[in-house]
Computed example of a mutant assay.
Amino acid sequence: MVFANERLVALLVPAREGWFLQVGLGPCEREGLLFGNLGGAEAWVRACLATCPAEQERRAEPLV
């Protein structure tokens, strides 16, 4: 399970070739992607979050 800002954004499962995206949620809404390693999956999730305006606003909010 992949969480961002305390929300589930993806479900990855191990596969012979690396990691398989079972389902992506919210800004990462996709399915059926294959990543050679967890680093590739992490980069993809970060890219999804970087293009989502709601996630950009969350990062801009000060932490209390």
Rank of each mutant, 00 (worst) to 15 (best):
V45I: 09
E29Q: 03
L63Q: 12
R59S: 15
G18I: 13
F3M: 06
F3Q: 08
L25Y: 08
C52L: 07
L21T: 08
Q56D: 15
N37S: 03
L33F: 13
G32L: 03
V9H: 01
A15D: 01
E55D: 13
G40M: 05
R30E: 12
R30K: 05
E29Y: 03
Q22W: 09
V9W: 03
R46Q: 13
R16F: 11
R59T: 14
R7N: 09
C28M: 08
G40A: 08
V9E: 04
A54T: 13
E6W: 00
W19P: 04
L25G: 01
G39D: 07
E17L: 14
A47G: 09
E29D: 04
L38T: 08
Q22D: 11
M1N: 13
V2F: 07
A4F: 02
W19T: 09
V9Y: 05
V13Q: 07
A4L: 04
G39A: 00
L49N: 03
L63C: 10
P62C: 14
E57P: 05
E55T: 12
L11M: 04
N37Q: 05
E61K: 07
L38E: 13
P27D: 09
A47I: 02
A54L: 13
A50N: 13
E42S: 07
L49I: 15
R30S: 12
L21V: 09
Q22V: 07
L12F: 13
E6I: 01
Q22K: 12
Q22H: 01
M1C: 04
W44C: 10
L38N: 06
G24M: 08
L21K: 06
G26Q: 03
E31G: 11
N37F: 00
E6A: 01
A43V: 04
L21C: 05
P53Y: 11
E29S: 10
V2A: 04
C48W: 10
R16A: 14
C52D: 08
V9Q: 01
R46I: 05
C52T: 00
R7H: 06
V64N: 07
L25P: 02
W19D: 12
A41M: 02
G32V: 05
E31W: 05
A15Y: 01
Q56L: 08
V64C: 10
V64R: 12
L11G: 00
E17D: 15
N5D: 14
R59C: 15
E29W: 01
L49T: 15
G32E: 09
L12A: 00
L34Q: 07
R59Q: 15
A47L: 08
R58G: 06
L63N: 13
V64T: 14
A15W: 06
E57V: 15
E29L: 05
C52R: 00
G32K: 13
